[in-house]
Design a binder for these strands. Sequence first.
DNA 1: GGCGCGCCTTGACCTAAGTCAAACGAATCT
DNA 2: AGATTCGTTTGACTTAGGTCAAGGCGCGCC
Lengths: 225, 225
Amino acid sequence: MNLDSGDIEYLKGGYLLAALSPAEFEEVLAHGNVRTLTPGECLFDQGDPCTHFFFVLSGVIKLCRMAQSGEEKVMDLVRPGSFFAEAAMFMGGRYPVHAYALEATRLVVLDNRHFLGLVRSNGDLCMRLLSTMSQRMHCLINEIKNLTLNSGAQRVIGYLLEQLPEGDAAPNVRFRAPKHVIASRLGIQPETLSRVLAKLRSRQLIDVHGDQIVLNDVEALRRLS
Amino acid sequence: MNLDSGDIEYLKGGYLLAALSPAEFEEVLAHGNVRTLTPGECLFDQGDPCTHFFFVLSGVIKLCRMAQSGEEKVMDLVRPGSFFAEAAMFMGGRYPVHAYALEATRLVVLDNRHFLGLVRSNGDLCMRLLSTMSQRMHCLINEIKNLTLNSGAQRVIGYLLEQLPEGDAAPNVRFRAPKHVIASRLGIQPETLSRVLAKLRSRQLIDVHGDQIVLNDVEALRRLS
DNA sequence: GGCGCGCCTTGACCTAAGTCAAACGAATCT
DNA sequence: AGATTCGTTTGACTTAGGTCAAGGCGCGCC
């Protein structure tokens, strides 16, 4: 297991393991390891017995099936920060797709049998998993609504309000990531984010000092979102 | 239980119950009922013991919390076709939000204890639930990527290719819903969908006859998506 | 200090897609 | 058959937001 602490944080952020207690997480890690694939290398084939599931640290994995015409149909491209083959794990049986590395790729490889044993032996953990997955799904659905229904400016405002701490002491927010990352999360270009913030600032609705944003008029912002 | 057959289909389409066998589904339904709320009526309050979860047939439910300032913070608006309070069910304990009907609303009300009993007593069902939820999440994530990364035209093409049956006999697709619904699913206006199809037709890539679409050049389309 | 390097901002421009409005066709009703 | 309605298509126009290119600013490095 040559996972550095960054990798571990990254892995913990993935939805599947977020519900685990530290002890459970350690437990899972103990039965996992890291694997590096070369470009084009095959991880598993469609029909192989389903024995492990995976988390991408870097690189890209192609999941595909072969049509009888010989044509390959790409089902998914899995990029860093995502699990794959967990659904197959829960179903058991065999992998329904082929998995190839498209470039040099680092994976966390986790053992199905061990993970399922943990889940099965612990009804409480199972419920937590179902719960976090439900929550995550509601979030994703909201994000889709947000992307299709709201304008870029509205999404920025919504994001600011969302970041606002519960106990509304001082209405200011701090970007915990470079702005171009925030922009990408909101589905806009960094230039657009910059312009939106500039416009809000010119209307006195916010003040910007580096990554610190002060919301001067939460009410007005809420009306706009 | 005054659910008509349309309601039942609708409910079955919701992600949570999609994994259930017909027998299990009947079983769950047997312990559910339909409730109608008047506009403004409260379904449950934050802190109430969590005893049921819900599916919206029509109307809108507002989920909100109260900040100590007395301000209410709307966490979600649940519209027809969605479950809510299932995450709370899996966690157990109490509802973390208030739920009010914003307008006249019909709900399916399902019993937590009974549903959880079913899940707990049936490890296999539990795994199927986890599996379908994983799959659904991958779909949602892909939809988000699609919305942010691809143009409207690309999404239309992607949708057409997605609809293409596996066994590539005749490369034609049929819209199983009115076009404005398809458009909305793709996050564009009906006019735009119409225009995209017109353009593809003018390039000889497809033929449109009502809701039947013939893909003349699957390869070229794939290159464009 | 001067220099180079990322990151952010700003401006000018352009294109995709939304809006509004009109016309069309198919299906239903009288 | 004629009228009405609903879904779709098409055209003209507008606009949000992407792209490209040019500065500005903070920061570490030599």
